[in-house]
Design a protein around this nucleic acid. Structure first.
Lengths: 130, 130
DNA sequence: GCCCAAGGTTACAAAAAGGGAACTGCCATG
DNA sequence: CATGGCAGTTCCCTTTTTGTAACCTTGGGC
């Protein structure tokens, strides 16, 4: 387990300025903490995708949730939606600069999740046994 | 806006191995994406806290949600709960090494949220106007 | 003429998350 | 003896989120 880290490595500038009524943490995490948003952001970090490509890349998402999550990400400025007037109009979704900048810290959490998934599952089993 | 970043800075090891039925991203984000968990983790990153101290430090949380969120964080191995048999028993909550290691990448997202909160709010206003 | 793909929307149902208030047991203080 | 702090638990209700399924339009291929 590489879970040991010197606490000096952590800087939380937020602690001094946190406003609970207008909380940036909630505002951002509320979106990226949804069920599908992180997965879509991961896919889009690779390259732009069309609507149907995203459906295929995230197999168990419904059309409804895909539309809704993309609209939310677009609203927050993380994703840009571009309609190309081809024969059947095609719609491309791509990360904006803001979305790409979010992915820098977010990918840290994602990689942590990958690395420490087993430790979390083990902790749950220990807790549930007691 | 410092939202521009070279995409080379992003490494998503997860892309090749992602299993949608046993998804580490969901497993971890599901917890830390809750309404109260990030705020509690931030408080606990400072120092261990007792139950009532946490209530005071996160003023609008109810007793019910505080207990429940702490139990979830304990179950996942992020927080340790220690009961001291003092006159009125006092209960201390502290980050575990696993919890502290999570805070390293998580604080990156938190600081991003602080820095880019205004950009997100501005994007929302633009979107809602159209 | 029929069916399919793209890119959705709408209505409805189910499930999960969160909130409010009351109640508990223990001990201490005034 | 009443009040208040600590650390919760329980019940019930509302809100939010997610899922299921059906429907829509335009255009192309067979």
């Amino acid at each position: 387990m590489d879970a040991r880290v010197s606490s000096q490595a952590i800087r939380l500038d937020i602690l001094e300025t946190l406003d609970f009524n207008n909380c940036p943490v909630r505002d951002v995490m509320g979106q990226i903490g949804g069920k599908w948003a992180p997965l879509l952001l991961i896919s889009l970090s690779e390259r732009p995708y069309r609507f149907s490509d995203l459906r295929r890349s995230v197999p168990d998402i419904s059309q409804r949730m895909l539309t809704q999550t993309l609209r939310d990400l677009e609203r927050d400025g993380f994703v840009a939606r571009t309609v190309y007037p081809t024969k059947p109009p095609s719609v491309e979704y791509a990360l904006t600069p803001l979305g790409r900048s979010l992915l820098v810290p977010l990918s840290g959490v994602i990689n942590w999740a990958e690395s420490n998934h087993e430790a979390v599952r083990a902790a749950r089993i220990r807790y549930d046994a007691a």
